[in-house]
């Protein structure tokens, strides 16, 4: 099977810290995909280009409320509608690894691709007049100048909870695939038929069950002696469990 590179994001670990968003910005604005223009950076309506944004959702009713963070960048869809609609072929999907890229030199800035993306993951840079988006840090992952263990997307390196994994989801041995399999990975909007490569792992609750036996398996116990204000400790074997 072809290589299909993707991010796997674990919502069981994501604490919504935005590190993936800013580190992405830092790497990419000064990298091959940059600069990522910020308009009005110190004014009333700052408006910047970001390849990755972390959204916050509340789910359920109080007090059974869950808080979900959703870091979202291009899903590098297998059936990428953005590729199909592009009139200039500026947007293309790489055969060798499935990364969807925009060639800024060809893009005319018609924005059509962004309409066709159901995830809201394309970012128009109105200063350059071209469409931009997550490149899966293509200038890191194949960059032989970097130490081997740093040939990963910036957001993955940064993530303080290690909620992000990068890898080939077509390779069943890859860490990414194993995580999808074991963590019941899912895709966003599966019904729209884009077949996104990025996956998310759901929350998994740890529950502890305590048996009555365990409560009674005491090594020592405090008992009330005579008056209720006085206490004594009874140790181990000789406990006639009260």
């Amino acid at each position: 099977m072809d290589t299909r590179l993707a991010l796997v994001i674990d919502q069981n670990k994501c604490v919504g810290c935005h590190a993936c968003a800013t580190n992405c910005k830092a790497w990419n604005t000064a990298g091959a995909a940059g600069p990522l223009t910020d308009r009005d950076p110190y004014g009333k309506a700052p408006r910047g280009v970001w390849f990755n944004r972390v959204q916050t959702y509340e789910v359920g009713q109080y007090p059974n409320t869950e808080v979900h963070y959703l870091p979202k960048s291009c899903m590098h869809c297998k059936d990428a509608p953005c590729v199909k609609v592009c009139p200039t072929s500026a947007t293309y999907k790489r055969k060798e690894d499935g990364i969807v890229l925009v060639d800024y030199d060809q893009c005319i800035g018609c924005k059509y691709c962004s309409w066709a993306c159901p995830y809201g993951c394309r970012e128009y840079d109105d200063y350059d007049g071209v469409m931009k988006k997550c490149t899966l840090c293509i200038d890191r992952i194949y960059n032989e100048k970097l130490p081997a263990d740093e040939r990963k997307p910036a957001c993955v390196l940064a993530c303080p909870t290690k909620a992000r994994t990068f890898g080939d989801i077509n390779d069943p041995q890859s860490e990414a695939s194993v995580k999808i399999l074991e963590g019941l990975g899912f895709k966003l909007l599966p019904e729209v038929g884009t077949s996104p490569s990025n996956h998310y792992l759901p929350k998994r609750k740890v529950k502890i069950r305590i048996d009555e036996d365990e409560i009674l398996a005491r090594k020592h116990v405090i008992v009330v002696t005579e008056k209720s204000s006085s206490y004594a400790e009874v140790i181990a074997e000789d406990i006639a469990v009260p």
Partner: peptide, 8 residues
């Protein structure tokens, strides 16, 4: 008004 932290 515009910030472009650029190297490329």
């Amino acid at each position: 008004d515009i910030l472009r932290y650029e190297f490329m």
